[in-house]
Design a protein around this nucleic acid. Structure first.
Lengths: 125, 125
DNA sequence: ATATTACTCAACCAAACGGTTGAATGCAAG
DNA sequence: CTTGCATTCAACCGTTTGGTTGAGTAATAT
């Protein structure tokens, strides 16, 4: 039913949950870059960036082609498309559901025949 | 420009990166539930579910109203809307960028009018 | 009043994460 | 061959995470 064990989604959402990683993607959107030029733009160590790149790579969001001694990184938006589709689909479904509930409650509040409109004790703190 | 330090996005993407949490959201999409009824549907402990719910709550994805001794959880798709908007926006931008690059490369490879248009002597590899 | 139910909070654990430093590898030049 | 550059690998560290158990609290049921 609710196909909720999609490992690719885990990887992609996990990848873009980190602000540094989102920033790396943004830089890469401006064109291909090597790990070195990328690292120069960030306040963390070279190896730190290398690790982030590896995470993005595992999520399928960046691709690496080795040219001699440098690794050129390019963006691959395909998994992002999947992730966006999932999110959009569920968002729409959930919002529809909530809207229907709201409409139902509104109808309930002003019923045709009064008789048993009870209020549940509102607690809270 | 590349607004990449949005803590809410971190929370939301981090929340939906976990399959159990996505499953919880899916259950909640079917209507409100208490922590207990929720926990009964999952192979982990009650407290485990409780913790997941807390994460979702911190991301703003579920809301809790305390009715007596039970906590009723409802879905709040608003942050999901934000997240979907961000993802869709960036995805479109990145894909556009890549498409342009592709077009540029195609043009480079087979110029408009066959006849002259020699290559600049840039060796391949 | 006591027991039961519905939870949270606190402590703990192992694994993963984000980050560092210090090798080691592999390619390019002098 | 030696030096230097670009990069990964490996080890380590502190914090977060996903999970557990156990105790505590508040509301309901008996």
């Amino acid at each position: 039913m609710a196909r909720t064990a999609e490992p690719l989604l885990d990887q992609v959402y996990g990848a873009i949950a980190d602000p540094t990683r989102r920033a790396i993607l943004a830089v890469l959107a401006g064109g291909e870059a090597t790990v070195g030029t990328l690292a120069a733009r960030f306040p963390i160590s070279f190896n730190g960036v290398s690790k982030h790149v590896k995470v993005l790579e595992r999520a399928g969001l960046v691709q690496r082609t080795i040219h001699g001694r440098e690794h050129r990184l390019t963006l691959n938006p395909t998994p992002l498309r999947e992730a966006a589709r999932w999110l959009e689909h569920y968002r729409a479904f959930w919002e529809m559901r909530l809207d229907r509930l709201e409409a139902f409650l509104a109808k309930q509040q002003r019923p045709t025949a009064p008789g048993r409109a009870r209020q549940t004790g509102k607690g809270g703190r």
